[in-house]
Amino acid sequence: MALDQSFVGRTYPPTAPYEVGREKIREFAEAVGETNPVYTDPEAAKAFGYSDVIAPPTFVFSITFRAAAQVVEDPQLGLDYSRVVHGDQKFAYVRPVRAGDRLTVTSTIEAIKSLAGNDVLDIRGEVHDEAGEHVVTAWTKLVARAAEEA
């Protein structure tokens, strides 16, 4: 069944702050094979002009996706998560995420489409730091594949 179009434009409450830790960044950087010391060595990060180590560009997805779960699991929306695949992902950065950031995410449903029986959901996540400054925006397109005929 197609998703309710009236959910387009709906914004969910901001998430509780996620505190970005140096060692979490290190763990993520190592998991993707990164060797740039800007991710692991605070002195190297300072040489690049950052107050502490920064996170690889896609790190923030772990935080925005958790926030998007509010949307995905909204019983009123009724998305069948077992059929969901990740279609597109985009980020626009004001500045890199860095250790010590306390980040909140505000998720908005930007679009709902039905294509060949698949539900396509566009979610925008606005990420702000503790001072309320905008850090990055993440756009996530989720595709719920059509259920097979019974």
């Binding site: 740039n36 800007v38 560009p57 985009k90 980020f91």
Partner: peptide
């Protein structure tokens, strides 16, 4: 890496 402005 902070030079990346957008990535999709």
């Amino acid at each position: 890496p902070g030079a990346v402005v957008e990535y999709g």
